[in-house]
Design a binder for these strands. Structure first.
Lengths: 196, 196
DNA sequence: CTTATATGAGACATTGTTGTCTCAGGAGTG
DNA sequence: CACTCCTGAGACAACAATGTCTCATATAAG
């Protein structure tokens, strides 16, 4: 039961901090329904809490994506599945990237950059298969994906988009936004199914 | 010279706070090259500084857009010009929206919501003229525009996108991302100029 | 009932930040 | 030079947040 409450606190802290990165430990504890002292028994310092949250969030992103069989599908479809998997985690995805307490942590940086590289590889694969404009820089594509993931989460959070629509909407916006020009090299472009 | 230095400090504070919203007044003052006491002579409190920054930023956005002759061009073109005008201000645009010190200020809210409504109207006009998918909610479109504006600014800031390309890239991503399906109601869809 | 463990409340010192104030010195004007 | 205005440095108290600690209490196991 020990680590169970730890997980509960961690999840609640994630929700609190995502909405207000300046939340005090007292805020975090009370929103989690535990005493401040109890929170300090699990996490020695505020920074340790954030670090644990960051690492756990990265792990959750790994878990959510590693079940996707990327090899068995076109890269475009793989990205669609990636959106679906990560959008629900969009809050952590976002605030951690800007959290000064953790951006310089070597372990966090290593995992975070590896994940970003995986995404860049997927995008390059989409360029190769012709589902993404080769003339658009991968850096822009990566930044756009990350932004759309957060916007999709935030739109669900504030109620302006239905939960089940969010990932699809974000994916559609991205993939069409960076589609190759139709009159470009026809290459291996395939006919699309009737429905988007 | 009085209000001139005030403007200088305000601009520098905007840059500092955009990159670190938790920056202390001492940080802001030293980055601005002035003493902390001097800063307090211009702005009574930290919150007053942020409030002034917020209001000035909204005013800058108004100034940047009000020279665009929206009536003389298609809405799609108007949005392109809007991107070009606002992307350079993307930093303020972003951090102010999440700044708890100001989001509840009535004046800020009024101007901010009016600007968001202007954007929503422009998007609705694009739907009417057929340059945007009617089935996509305006709320999603607005959120996407705002996100892309910030990403474009951030990409310029970290050097991954050239300054002159940023607005165009963001606009292209948006307008194609939410284009109507080609096989949709042909309605009043016009032939487009050769270049996007 | 008794014991062990975990908890919440809260006191406490420490630190960092805010906002006020004073003062010495620099720039410009007469 | 004399005078004024503005500035930066820094002292200062008030305050908020962090991190440590104690203690009374609850809950569960024996």
């Amino acid at each position: 039961m020990n680590s169970l409450k730890r997980q509960t606190v961690l999840a609640s802290a994630g929700a609190t901090l995502a909405r207000n990165p300046a939340a005090s430990v007292a805020d975090i504890a009370s929103r989690a329904g535990v005493g401040r002292a109890t929170l300090y028994r699990f996490f020695a310092t505020r920074e340790a809490l954030i670090r644990a949250l960051a690492l756990e969030s990265l792990m959750q992103i790994d878990e959510a994506t590693q079940t996707i069989p990327y090899e068995t599908m076109p890269a475009e479809r793989g990205l669609a599945e990636t959106f679906k998997a990560i959008v629900p985690l969009g809050d952590r995805f976002h605030f951690l990237a800007n959290e000064p307490a953790v951006v310089h942590d070597p372990e966090f940086k290593a995992v975070s950059e590896r994940q970003r590289k995986d995404l860049a590889d997927l995008i390059d694969a989409m360029k190769s298969e012709g589902s993404l404009d080769r003339t658009v820089s991968t850096a822009w594509a990566v930044a756009t994906v990350e932004a759309l993931i957060y916007v999709a989460w935030a739109s669900v959070d504030d109620g302006s988009v239905a939960r089940r629509d969010a990932a699809g909407l974000a994916f559609r916006t991205f993939v069409r936004g960076l589609q190759p020009d139709q009159w470009e090299t026809p290459s291996s472009r395939e006919t699309k199914p009737a429905k988007s």
